[in-house]
Structures are given as structure tokens and as C-alpha cells.
């Protein structure tokens, strides 16, 4: 009887030890699963983060351009910079990043839809950002890879291109008006009056074209004589009341482009 009891205890102890789950094995399994979730979170947010990056880039650039002559073409966000900053963060988490991401900037039309992660709205003459990406986040230790390929488009709701075009039209139009006014053969007073009417007509026509687009144009000029030359100094301001720019953690409404130029006329 005693031997039987000892044998039973021995069998129980043996079964207890044998049936113990391997803690190490489980730990690696759990660790792997946790890493998988982390990897998925990193990969699933690549699209949104690439668009937030683009929005921050374009809005920061626009905030710097506010009040300037708006002669510069909007630059594209730097895909390499996005990768570099992302890699720095991923490296600290034990992941690596491979693949490519490219941005392009162009003029938007009032049709189409801006990606919700980028925000904004598509307007005529606004700034449109497109992103094409093939990226993969890797966990070299556990041999896991998450591929994400996507294309996305965002529209910055500031009619920068349109404002830039309006100012260029005003600049070139004013040159034509001055040329026509002073080559018509009248005296100085008549030429000046003709120029005043011409500029007024030019601004009126541009304003009419901009009806319903949220933009307003204002132009003025002054004259001065420099020897036998008449210098006409123009100043034009275009404002976009519907523009929205995110800068310094705040939404700022309104955008202005202001340009000055001079036309010189040789007097007879």
C-alpha cells in the first residue's frame, strides 16, 4: 500500500513537471505577437503620417510666403526627409524602414476630394500635393515585414497659384496699358487719363473673373518724373479670404500676396 502511494505521488509530480508550459517559449510567442501589433501600428499609419508631413510642409511654406510678391513656385515636400525622420524613430523602437516615397506639387482644381488626413479642400488655383509610396517596415529580429503601397492626394485650401497668376496678369497688363496710353500720340495729361482708365478697366476685368472664388484684388499706382522719364510705380494686393493655413499649432485664415513694380516711360 505504501509503495502504491509513493508511486502515485511520483507519477503526480512527474506529470506536473512534464505538463508545465515552457515559459520561455511562451514568452517569445507573446513578445512576437506584441511586436506584430507594434509593427502593424507603424505600417498602418504611414499613409496618414505622409499626408500630415506634407500638410505641415506646405502650410509652413505658405505661412512664410504670406504678404510676399508670391513669385516663387511652391516646392515639393522632401520624401527623403520624411523617411529620415521616420527611420530615426523606428530605429529607436528596433524597426527599420525601406522603400521609397515621392511627393509632387501642382495646381488644384475646384473638383476632386482632398484626403481627410491632409484636410483642406480643393479650390481653383490651390496647392495640390500628391504622394506615391512603397514602404516597408521591418523587424529584423523576428523576421517580420509589413509592406504598404499607396497613392494619395491632398489640397491645401489657399489659392496660391491663382493669386500668383492674377498678379502676373496685372503686371503684364499694366505694361501693355502704359505702352498703349503713351504711344497713342496724345499729350501727357491725355496719356495719363488714358492710362488711369486702362488700369481701372484691367482691374475691373480681373475682379469680374474672380467672382465667387473668394479672392479680392486691389491695385494702385503713383507717378514721378526723373529727368525726361516718367516712372510709374505700381502696387497690387490680392487677398484670399477663404485661405486656411496651419502654423504654430493654430489655424490662420486669410492669405495676401503683394507685389510692387515700376514702368518707365521716356517722355518726348
Amino acid at each position: 500500500m505504501k509503495e502504491l502511494v509513493v508511486l502515485l505521488i511520483a507519477v503526480l509530480i512527474a506529470s506536473f513537471i512534464v505538463s508545465l508550459p515552457s515559459f520561455d517559449g511562451d514568452w517569445y510567442l507573446y513578445r512576437g505577437e506584441a511586436r506584430m501589433w507594434e509593427l502593424a501600428a507603424e505600417a498602418d499609419t504611414l499613409r496618414a503620417r505622409s499626408l500630415i508631413f506634407a500638410r505641415a510642409f506646405v502650410d509652413t511654406w505658405l505661412a512664410r510666403m504670406n504678404g510676399t510678391p508670391c513669385e516663387i513656385q511652391p516646392p515639393s515636400p522632401n520624401g527623403s526627409l520624411f523617411k529620415e525622420e521616420l527611420m530615426e524613430d523606428l530605429r529607436a523602437k528596433g524597426f527599420s524602414l525601406a522603400g521609397s516615397i515621392g511627393y509632387s506639387v501642382g495646381e488644384s482644381m475646384a473638383v476632386g476630394r482632398s484626403d481627410p488626413a491632409f484636410g483642406g479642400a480643393c479650390r481653383d488655383g490651390g496647392v495640390e500635393v500628391s504622394v506615391i509610396s512603397h514602404l516597408e517596415v521591418r523587424d529584423a529580429l523576428l523576421g517580420m515585414v509589413a509592406h504598404r503601397s499607396f497613392r494619395a492626394k491632398g489640397c491645401q485650401p489657399t489659392s496660391y497659384y491663382l493669386m500668383r497668376r492674377v498678379l502676373s496678369e496685372l503686371e503684364s497688363g499694366s505694361l501693355s496699358v502704359v505702352k498703349d496710353s503713351f504711344s497713342a500720340g496724345g499729350n501727357l495729361t491725355e496719356s495719363m487719363e488714358m492710362m488711369r482708365k486702362g488700369i481701372s478697366h484691367l482691374v475691373g476685368a480681373i475682379r469680374e473673373n474672380l467672382t465667387g472664388k473668394g479672392l479680392d484684388v486691389w491695385a494702385s499706382y503713383s507717378t514721378k518724373f526723373l529727368g525726361d522719364r516718367l516712372i510709374i510705380s505700381f502696387r497690387a494686393v490680392v487677398t484670399d479670404g477663404e485661405a486656411v493655413i496651419i502654423y504654430g499649432g493654430k489655424e490662420r485664415r486669410g492669405f495676401t500676396c503683394s507685389r510692387d513694380w515700376e514702368v518707365s516711360v521716356e517722355l518726348p
Partner: peptide
């Protein structure tokens, strides 16, 4: 992941 995708640019605000 859901929050980043849902908020998007609003994170900048």
C-alpha cells in the same frame, strides 16, 4: 493607429 488615421492633420492643431 486608429487615432492617427482619424485625426490626420488635426494633430498639427
Amino acid at each position: 493607429a486608429r487615432t492617427v488615421n482619424r485625426l490626420g492633420y488635426r494633430i498639427l492643431l
